[in-house]
Simulated assay, not measured.
Amino acid sequence: MSLLFFGKDPDSDDDHCPSAWVDETTADLVLQGWKSDDATEAQCLNFGSIPDTEAVIRIPARMVPQLRKACDAAERAANESNLR
């Protein structure tokens, strides 16, 4: 697995940064974010379960430019390798 880094939250300190990568092998987005609070998780549960292998995270809106770039790169990689 090789991760292509797209950026960290510009307003967070170095130890607590939401971040975005793309897995160059699978074209998956890999995101690091803040753990959701109980109220957010409870609202998400209205739409379905959250398995133990998944997590609800928050990514700040100010990271949209990095996420957009990561999504574009993931889409290109998926199209090039027919991962869809």
Rank of each mutant, 00 (worst) to 15 (best):
F6K: 03
A74W: 06
Q32H: 07
M1N: 07
C71A: 15
D38C: 02
I59E: 03
A73F: 11
D23P: 03
F6A: 05
R76Q: 10
A20S: 12
E24C: 12
A39Y: 03
T25F: 08
W34E: 01
A55L: 09
S81H: 14
R58F: 06
A61H: 14
D72R: 14
T26N: 05
P18C: 06
D52C: 09
M1T: 11
P10E: 05
L3H: 09
A61D: 04
D37I: 02
P51M: 10
F5A: 12
Q66F: 12
W34F: 13
A73S: 15
A61M: 13
A78L: 04
P60L: 13
E41D: 10
Q32N: 01
W21S: 09
V30S: 03
G48V: 07
N82Y: 08
A27E: 01
L67T: 05
A70D: 03
R68F: 13
D38S: 04
T26G: 06
N82A: 06
A61C: 07
A55K: 13
E75F: 13
S36E: 00
I59P: 02
L31E: 03
K35D: 00
E75Y: 14
N79S: 14
L29P: 01
L4I: 04
C71R: 15
W21R: 08
I57S: 02
Q32Y: 08
C17G: 06
N46F: 10
A78V: 02
T26M: 05
S2C: 09
S12N: 01
E80A: 15
N82D: 01
R68Y: 13
D23C: 14
S81R: 15
T25K: 11
D38F: 10
A70G: 09
N46V: 03
V30F: 11
D9H: 07
I57Q: 02
D15L: 15
D72L: 15
S36D: 00
S2D: 10
P60D: 02
A70Q: 05
D23L: 10
D9C: 15
K8F: 08
G48H: 12
V64I: 15
A74C: 08
E24H: 09
W34V: 00
T40L: 14
V56W: 13
G33T: 01
L29G: 05
D38Q: 06
Q32P: 00
S49F: 13
S12K: 03
D14F: 12
A55Q: 09
L83I: 03
N46A: 11
G33A: 06
D15I: 11
T25M: 08
D28H: 14
A20V: 15
D11K: 07
D9Y: 09
N82I: 02
T53V: 12
L45A: 14
P51T: 07
K8H: 08
N46E: 06
T25H: 12
R68D: 07
G33V: 05
A27F: 11
V56D: 00
R58M: 04
D37W: 04
A39G: 00
W34S: 02
L29F: 11
D15Q: 14
